[in-house]
Design a protein around this nucleic acid. Structure first.
Length: 905
RNA sequence: GCCGAAGUGGCGGAAUGGCAAACGCGGCGGAUUCAAAAUCCGCUGUCCUCACGGGCUUGUGGGUUCGACUCCCACCUUCGGUACCA
């Protein structure tokens, strides 16, 4: 019974990650092991992480997840003798640094570069094999220069233009707010009133690329869900534009957009968006007061609030009537905020019989409902709800009897012939609002002529009229246009942004004429739109990237990043790429060949409850969010937000304990001090939950290799996974065991069993790395390590191969093992182990013998055993016989190397 | 509502038509130790049974199949995204 460890020599001393890891990191850095270079004839891989915003709170355990995945592939590819480009940089413009600057008066770049230094230190500490010589930040002058250069390219190609767009202007804060910063028409910070006001903005004409952005998705290997989301966001919709005129006002016409032209004869009303330009002029005097009131109310709501109230339809009649383009009948014109001004034409035809929203609207305001599409071609008395499916036209005069698609075509044709409509394609996608009224962003490289009184000096405050209608591009030779060094970063009272206050920067003279610079800056998206191109050639001073560098590395072979960027970042970057393609600067239609989203890492906490008097209650208590239907609670309501016990109706407080406050007693998580049962909850990490994990702490306690191994071992890369610190123990033991086992290797020849397992391990790990199945790759290496651990003597060949397999996952310990095994050089470029397919399959395999689908025994069979041999051998098994006695075999199933099944009766 | 992902031991997960629960955490028992930690070995889905052994089990209910975690239909739950897009 007690045999195995007597023969195992003691390990040569414990593995000290704190000493080993920094030593190898220094080694790689000094020798520039991971510097990317192209060799002719070699395969290349461009492995890209979505670069981080260097926030003040430092690296989060979520970051290393995707970064470890690409790093494993990068290190693996180098060992396969491929050329690897694996860069890292910083998406460094952004609001937090600007807000910090407003509070402290320090320039945002100071804080930004401090944060970058922290992130860089933390990433280096994790041993990622980036080519740090290509590091860049979007805030670097040399980077901004080319971001501005691309903007000018867009401008010169007519893809950047100015427009008046309603924004959330907060006079008290003196700034424009994003939608999410506005709650109930007031600012999230400070609760000041916010008004919707039109403001001059730079727009990018992304809609010009809508079709190509949708179509070229067929070129890429992306997650199915992301492709769907992009297609839906672009939202191509084929339909018709139909013209209505206003009764008694022959010059006032408007168009509606519809995908169901076939229902045109079912129109009983039309609805205009509150911001529709015709609303003001067609409203009758009798209705003016209520319409004005309604429009004002709609304007005070943010887009979000307006959309949030979807339950009940609101609207008011304008008093005007529209003339139906085919029937000539008069239908009432209403204003309703369920119609969106910016989509289609900002007007819809109301077909309550066949559109759910129109149906609700008609019900609410008692408007007529007419059936024009029937499932069976017969007319029906009343409609209980809108019939939105295809069918056969009824009540539609000459179009009766036509099927929906034919009817649509016939009606559009008819409208075209009388000049009242035409087929049209509309997109949900809108042009991209590209300017921000902020300081900490790339200045837009545009200036405008200025009209001044004779001898006036605008730098000294002379009143200037800026001709925004005459934008002029800055000369390329003058790029980058740098930000002025302000001492005060507050927004001020001018919606034009803080740059407008810097008069010496804003106004300048050229050939005796005064000009004014654009004071808007670019959004944070700008820098991330093309960083994958700058990584190709980051030091190039004469162009953004050279054609040679592009040909060397593009396209990106694997792009890993969070699903939160599934739509906007990826769409914007693809848009720029296509513009660059049209201008001849890039050669691929799509920049990112394969895309993977790493799943979010959740934090773990343990829930329990407290009663009003502070008594702790178990976490599996049955509670409800609302007291409705529960026994009434007599006492005073607490100050905190309660939930309610379903048994007594008593309000209780939800509380959360940390992992270290919990111990397991017969499977139940029990609170150590309170002694009550808790319930494990996995949730987004947040300070308030106390479930945030800091990578620095993990590296300090267990080392970078273990953080990498744990994050990869937790589960599939794409899955959402809860972090549980106690589980790290498993990979810590694995790392230490791998080190101990490998460093006691001897020169003994490898035994056949170990050899077969080794080849199977190599095969599985290789396949899993290629397929990004890192969790199963690690478990395969664990199995092999455990096998070696049980051997009286570990063959050196097995130890060396294990070190090589482990290297992409846990590079530091692998290097250390390699060194201890007598190799003076790093294994970072050593050849990846190969396997002999013959050794990965067994000649004899034990397979299950089933009777009527139930396993009744095992039989050892040759891989290639014949059906007759299998049948004979299976019938010999003692444990099978009782189930066969007195039965007849109705069917015999044999799948070689898999299963034997007797169907008996 | 719609779109997407997912529901498997006490926990993280494995197996995508062929022996469910690999690997790991935790737990139990043992070896080692003066003792502990670390390490090593064994057991560990659940129910019935002294045992041998057997039944049941992949969210629920149906179906296809010799055979279903896996495929099909319906439903429930959770998470993520999105939203009056005409």
């Amino acid at each position: 019974m007690t045999d195995s460890n007597a023969s195992s020599p003691a390990p040569k001393g414990k593995y000290d990650h704190a000493e080993v890891e920094p030593r190898w990191q220094k080694h790689w850095e000094e020798r520039q092991t991971f510097r990317a270079a192209r060799r002719p004839g070699k395969k290349k891989r461009y492995l890209l992480d979505m670069f981080p915003y260097p926030s003040g709170s430092g690296l989060h355990v979520g970051h290393p997840e995707g970064y470890t995945a690409t790093d494993i592939v990068a290190r693996y590819a180098r060992m396969r003798d491929e050329d690897v480009l694996h860069p890292m940089g910083w998406d460094a413009f952004g609001l937090p640094a600007e807000q910090y600057a407003i509070e402290t008066g320090t320039h945002p770049s100071v804080k930004t570069y401090e944060n970058i230094a922290t992130f860089r230190r933390q990433l280096k500490m994790l041993g990622f094999s980036y080519d740090w010589s290509r590091e860049l930040a979007t805030t670097d002058d040399e980077y901004v220069r080319w971001t501005q250069w691309i903007f000018l390219l867009l401008f010169k190609r007519g893809l950047a233009y100015q427009d008046e767009i309603p924004v959330n202007w907060c006079p008290a804060l003196g700034t424009v707010l994003a939608n999410e910063e506005v709650v109930d028409g007031r600012s999230e910070r400070g609760n000041h009133p916010v008004i919707r006001t039109p403001l001059r903005q730079w727009m990018l004409r992304i809609t010009a690329y809508a079709d190509r952005l949708a179509e070229d998705l067929s070129e890429v290997d992306w997650p199915h869900g992301t492709l769907t989301m992009q297609r839906e966001w672009i939202g191509r919709s084929e339909g018709a534009e139909i013209e209505f005129s206003v009764d008694g006002r022959p010059d006032d016409r408007f168009s509606v957009f519809t995908t169901r032209a076939d229902t045109l004869l079912g129109v009983t009303f039309v609805v205009l968006a509150p911001e529709h330009p015709l609303v003001k002029s067609i409203t009758t005097d009798a209705q003016r007061a209520s319409v004005d009131g309604y429009v004002a109310q709609a304007q005070s709501k943010s887009d979000r609030d307006r959309i949030a109230q979807t339950k009940t339809k609101t609207g008011v009649p304008t008093g005007a009537f529209a003339i139906h383009p085919l029937s000539g009948e008069k239908v009432p014109v209403w204003v309703g905020d369920y119609v969106i001004g910016s989509y289609g034409t900002g007007a819809v035809m109301g077909v309550p019989g066949h559109d759910a929203r129109d149906f609700e609207f008609a019900k609410a305001f008692k408007l007529a409902i007419v059936e024009v599409v029937s499932p069976d071609g017969k007319k029906h008395e009343t409609l209980e709800s809108a019939y939105v499916e295809d069918g056969i036209a009824v009540n539609s005069g000459e179009f009766d009897g036509l099927k929906t698609p034919d009817c649509s075509r016939a009606i559009v044709k008819k409208l075209e012939s009388i000049g009242k409509g035409r087929g049209k394609i509309t997109y949900k996608l809108r042009d991209w609002v590209f300017s921000r009224q902020r300081y900490w962003g790339e200045p837009i490289p545009i200036y405008f002529p200025v009209e001044l009184p004779e001898g006036g000096d605008p730098q000294k405050g002379a009143k200037a009229i800026i001709r925004f209608d005459k934008p002029i591009a800055i000369e390329e030779s003058e790029l980058p246009l740098r930000l002025p060094n302000l001492s005060d970063f507050r927004p001020g009272d001018d919606p034009a942004g803080p740059l407008a206050r810097s008069l010496e920067w804003r106004f300048f003279q050229k050939d005796g004429q005064w000009y004014a610079r654009e004071t808007n800056t670019m959004p944070q998206w700008a820098g991330s739109c093309w960083y994958y191109l700058r990584f190709l050639d980051p030091k190039n001073g004469s162009e953004g990237w050279s054609k040679e560098a592009y040909a060397d590395w593009m396209p990106v072979d694997l792009y890993v990043g969070g699903a939160e960027h599934a739509v906007l970042h990826l769409l914007y970057a693809r848009f720029w790429h296509k513009v660059l393609y049209d201008a001849g600067f890039v050669r691929d239609l799509e920049p990112f060949k394969k895309l993977v989203h790493q799943g979010m890492i959740l934090g773990t906490s343990y829930r329990f409850y407290r009663s009003v008097d502070g008594q702790a209650l178990p976490g599996d208590l049955s509670v409800a969010a609302e007291p409705t239907g529960l026994p009434a609670f007599k006492g005073a309501m607490p100050k905190w937000t309660p939930v309610f016990r379903t048994d007594t109706g008593e309000p209780v407080q939800e509380c959360f304990a940390k992992e270290e406050e919990i111990e397991l007693k017969s499977g139940d998580p029990i609170h150590r001090e309170l002694g009550i049962k808790t319930v494990l909850i996995a949730d987004k990490m947040s300070k308030s939950r106390g479930n945030v994990v800091n990578p620095d702490d993990i590296v300090k306690a267990h080392g970078a290799d273990c953080l990498r191994l744990y994050e990869m071992f937790m589960g599939p890369l794409e899955a959402v996974k809860p972090w549980q610190s106690s589980q790290i123990q498993g990979v810590v033991r694995f790392r230490d065991r791998a080190y101990a086992v490998c460093t006691r290797a001897t020169n003994d020849a490898i035994d056949p069993e170990t050899e077969r397992l080794l080849h199977r391990t190599i095969k599985k790990v290789t396949q899993d790395v290629e397929g990004l199945s890192f969790n199963t790759a690690i478990s395969t290496m664990m199995v092999f390590t455990n096998h070696l651990n049980g051997l009286p003597s570990v063959p050196k060949e097995a130890a060396e191969k294990l070190a090589l397999l482990l290297a992409p996952f846990a590079p530091h310990v692998a290097e250390e093992i390699w060194k201890e095994l007598g190799h003076p050089e790093s294994l970072a470029l050593a050849p990846w182990p190969s396997f002999d397919p013959k050794l990965t399959v067994d000649d004899k395999i034990e397979i299950a013998v089933q009777v009527n689908g139930k396993v009744r025994g095992q039989v050892l069979l040759a891989r290639t055993a014949s059906e007759e041999d299998a049948r004979k051998a299976a019938l010999e098994i003692d444990s099978v016989k009782p189930f066969m006695d007195g039965k007849t075999i109705k069917k015999f199933i044999y799948v070689p190397a898999r299963i034997v099944n007797f169907v008996v009766g």
